[in-house]
Design a protein around this nucleic acid. Structure first.
Length: 866
RNA sequence: GCGGGUGUGGCGAAAUUGGUAGACGCGCUAGACUUAGGAUCUAGUGCCGCAAGGCGUGGGGGUUCGAGUCCCUCCACCCGCACCA
């Protein structure tokens, strides 16, 4: 009988499912190992062959670790809240939960076909109230926390209130919206509303009027990472900047720790660089400029305080709040028309037309705090309101954008470093000797920076500052299919709903569009899980409005890895998002597998929430994943992206039906290195199918199992141990393609040797079972073992069997002519090592002449210099 | 522009610390068995050459007895960021 995957594979999948073979135990004497995949969003189009690539690799690794005696946690779940289900609901009226559940069912069927060793008893679904209760709970904690720079961690808001009551803002170093300053008695005199408003400026989850990305096409705001080239990542609709009152998370408080943490994790350099870039740390100073005939102060951020004397003008972002105060009557018209021009210019235009130089003069002059010189204040949209202070001191000699602006508007350009050539453009050199800079003259750039910082700090007109590009993350979405905020309002001040009343279950609504009043879809809800009108959540029997936005898609995925750590005990699951015992046992994810496209989204929020929960003492670690592998994308055969739209989707179900799941697994791994993008190649799968059939024949004579108990020969043992060594080494370094080759070599060699010996085939089956678990399980049971093979000890490669009887060495003389010489390997080890043999041999070849130099590389090559 | 990565046969790719480049698979060629083969098996397959031999890891240079691997430089492609002061 030939290898019949169609009957064998489903049998074993059923077996694993019924026996709960892969159920992880929270109590175990074994060392733990946590292998996690980025869970999928269950979309309507189902899985294509690209999706399982990472799952197969992580599954191979999980199985390998089980063989090595680890207690492996390898779970799977669904990131189930999201836009497509809601868009579909708007079009068809079908409730998103229905669509989502259908899609989940379909995903599960597809995943089940591939033979993954997931522990499904722990699956999570972010749209399940049992799960999002805790997403809401974490939000409540964020709301009731602030970031204390002195302890460098998040603390309960009560410690802040306590401080304010006793000392006001004195001695306080907190991450906050603005630098507020008041005394304890002032604080205590504030009304409750004033106090609450002030606290919002400190909370890690806060609601504020901010400039946000508004997407009219989707009817919602978006976070920065959800906007690509001025368009929404989902749907590709244009996005505009708008000032709106929205919820945000104060991720900026964690900028430095998010940066530092990257040095402690084993992630790819490119991914770390993307995150570093996104966080965008730069060191410099914030300086204050006065305004002529005004009491206003303009704060600027600069990385080159040494060039202060070269600042010949000042530029504010068009939206800068001082613009309206300082603009002179004569310039009012110019400024207003420029502001409306800048406002109308879309983000996209602005990005694509960076060469066009525009701006307007306010008529006002800033006073250089050191020289007291007056310099004109302009506005231009090359200065971004969202970065730094929204204002720059323009140094046209050293900055190309400033140079362009100065040249265009005929503003002076003063070089401040000796030899700076500003005739054709800015000279952005970062070293040299200062000129035209009064007391800085003659100093090096480095010295000048120190000197000027000393002076501005003494004069209290500026201070050293580290600035980050990272912005706070907008956290509310005007959508239905997401976690409702556990928030209600009194007098427009947000209050959280008590933790013991969670979850706030998503209410049923009849239509998923925004309301006629422009409220989010939740405005249509009449029945929440409490009666809004009766106002159960608030005092005095009076109803208060609830927050109508929902959380963004990345809320649930920022902490889901913790929920998997919980086993099924319902009482424990009710107590906390993860039990202290479970998190203490499982700790960090040991291997996280997923796409690099989440670099600036999920992977940043995921780290942020972990650090936050660590600060509050819920976790014993502050980085979620020790090792991360970004699997590449599988493209269609033409190199295009596989998608429903292109009609080039290869469905794994079809591949499994035609070739079997093991062949699919082997083939996906065999395509190339896991991190690389590669096209799907249909033809190539024949190769691995052939391999499986050959393997099967090694164990069989016709229909019957034919395995010999004879002692293996040296050659057979060599083949086996070579293979064990290669597969083990490769899996240790997370290479998933080369073990397939090693297994193929072994099977080819054993076939040629006609080796059907148990002592060889058994260990071979074990090392095969990571990549091709179904056939391995079947062969294992045919060898007379009770199932399952999954925890069989991994065989050791014995170097004894890897030695060659004799080796042939190429020998070159003067690096040119080559001889080949055959030597017994023992001899090489003992003799060549001492360079004795090589001299003798060399002399033999050189007709008795003594070689000058003999280079010996043990076991490899001999080169002779005459 | 800045940052990260990649470049090896007709194709996907191996080569772990510098040590016989191209393992393994696809494709191709020839042969065997077959009524048949898109099944199976055997042999061959980097390029040029009848051969001896020569040339070969994007180009050029360097270090070394020896370089796909290390250094310098240039080129091409991919990914990320992009007026970040």
């Amino acid at each position: 009988m030939e290898y019949d995957f169609a009957s064998i594979e489903p049998k074993w999948r059923r077996f694993w499912q019924e026996q709960l073979t892969f159920k992880a135990q929270n109590q175990s004497a074994k060392p733990k190992y946590y292998v996690l995949d980025m869970f999928p969003y269950p979309s309507g189009s189902g899985l294509h062959v690209g999706h399982p690539l990472g799952y197969i690799a992580s599954d191979i690794h999980a199985r390998y670790k089980r063989h090595q005696g680890f207690n492996v946690l390898h779970p799977m779940g669904y990131d189930a809240f999201g836009l497509p289900a809601e868009q579909y609901a708007i079009q068809t009226g079908q409730h998103p939960s229905k669509t989502t559940n259908q899609n989940i069912k379909r995903y599960r069927e597809q995943l089940d076909l591939i033979g993954f060793s997931f522990d499904w008893t722990r699956q999570v679904n972010t749209s399940n109230p049992e799960f999002y209760r805790w997403t809401q709970w974490i939000f409540v904690r964020l709301f009731h926390s602030w970031y204390n720079r002195l302890s460098d961690k998040a603390e309960p808001i009560t410690t802040l209130i306590d401080h304010l009551e006793r000392k006001g803002t004195q001695g306080l170093d907190a991450v906050a919206d603005e630098h507020a300053s008041f005394t304890a008695s002032e604080w205590n005199a504030f009304s409750i509303k004033e106090q609450r408003e002030m606290l919002l400026k400190f909370r890690l989850a806060y609601r504020a009027e901010t400039i946000v990305n508004w997407c009219p096409g989707l009817g919602t705001v978006l976070a920065n990472d959800e906007v690509v080239n001025g368009r929404s990542e989902r749907g590709g609709f244009p996005v505009e900047q708008r000032k709106m009152k929205q919820w945000s998370l104060r991720i900026t408080a964690y900028a430095q720790r998010l940066l530092d943490g990257l040095d402690t994790v084993d992630w790819s350099d490119s991914l770390k660089e993307i995150q570093r870039n996104w966080i965008g740390r730069s060191e410099g100073a914030e300086l204050s400029f006065g305004v002529q005939n005004h009491d206003a102060q303009i704060h600027v951020f600069t990385t080159r305080p040494d060039t202060l004397f070269g600042a010949t003008f000042m530029v504010l972002a068009p939206e800068h709040e001082l613009v309206e105060h300082i603009t002179t009557a004569g310039q009012q018209e110019d400024i207003s028309s420029y502001q409306s021009y800048a406002k109308a210019r879309s983000e996209r235009e602005r990005m694509s037309e960076t060469k066009i130089i525009t701006g307007a003069f306010t008529g006002a002059y800033a006073i250089n705090p050191i020289t007291k010189a007056a310099i004109p204040i302009w506005i231009s949209d090359y200065v971004l309101a969202s970065y730094g202070t929204g204002a720059v001191m323009a140094v046209p000699a050293g900055d190309q954008r400033d140079w362009d602006f100065a040249t265009h508007f005929h503003l002076p350009i003063t070089p401040v470093i000796q030899g700076q050539d500003v005739s054709e453009g800015a000279d952005e050199r970062k070293d040299g000797v200062m000129i035209n800079s009064d007391f800085l003259n003659g100093l090096s750039v480095k010295e000048a920076i120190e000197e000027i910082l000393k002076r501005v700090e003494e004069a209290n007109i500026g201070y050293r500052k580290v600035n980050y590009k990272l912005r706070d993350a907008v956290f509310s979405r005007q959508r239905y299919w997401g976690e409702p905020f556990p928030v209600y309002y009194r007098d427009d001040i947000p209050f959280t709903i008590d933790e013991d009343k969670l979850p706030i279950v998503l209410p049923e609504i009849n239509e998923f569009k925004p309301t006629e009043d422009g409220d989010p879809p939740l405005g249509r809800a009449t029945h929440w899980n409490w009666d809004r009108d009766k106002g159960e959540v608030v005092e005095n029997g009076k109803g208060f409005p609830l927050e109508l936005s929902t959380m963004p898609g990345w809320a649930g995925s920022s902490w889901y890895f913790l929920r998997y750590m919980m086993d099924g005990d319902p009482a424990e699951r009710q107590k906390l998002f993860v039990s202290p015992e479970a998190v203490e046992y499982w700790k960090q994810v040991d291997l996280y597998m997923g796409g690099a496209e989440h670099a600036t989204g999920h992977l940043l929020y995921f780290r942020f929430w972990t650090k936050f929960l660590y600060d509050l003492g819920f976790l014993p670690f502050d980085e979620p994943a020790k090792k991360l592998i970004n699997q590449g994308m599988i493209q269609a055969e033409d190199g295009q992206k596989m998608s429903k739209r292109h009609g080039n989707v290869v469905n794994p179900d079809d591949v499994v039906a035609e070739h079997g799941a093991d062949a699919l697994r082997l083939h996906e791994m065999f395509l190339g290195p896991i991190e690389m993008h590669k096209p799907w190649n249909t033809k190539g799968i024949e190769g691995v199918s052939k391999f499986l059939r050959k393997l099967w024949r090694l164990f069989h004579d016709g229909d019957i199992v034919d395995v010999s108990e004879d002692e293996p020969t040296k050659a057979e043992l060599k083949t086996l141990h070579k293979c064990i060594q290669k597969v083990s080494e490769d899996l240790d370094r997370f290479a998933f393609n080369t073990p397939v080759s090693a297994l193929m070599v072994a099977v080819n060699e054993l076939t040629a040797l006609k080796c059907n010996k148990r002592a060889v085939l058994e260990p071979l089956t074990v090392i095969l079972s990571c990549h091709a678990p179904h056939i391995a399980e079947e062969l294992w049971s045919r060898l007379g073992h009770p199932a399952s093979i999954s925890e069989e000890p991994w065989p050791e490669a014995n170097p004894e069997f890897l030695k060659d009887d004799s080796l042939t060495y190429p020998v070159s003389i003067n690096g040119k002519t080559r001889f080949h010489l055959e030597l017994p390997s023992d001899m090489v080890k003992e003799e060549v090592e001492r360079e004795v043999l090589s001299h003798e041999i060399a002399q033999k070849w050189l007709d008795g002449k003594t070689p000058k130099k003999v280079i010996v590389v043990i076991g490899r090559i001999v080169n002779v210099v005459v």
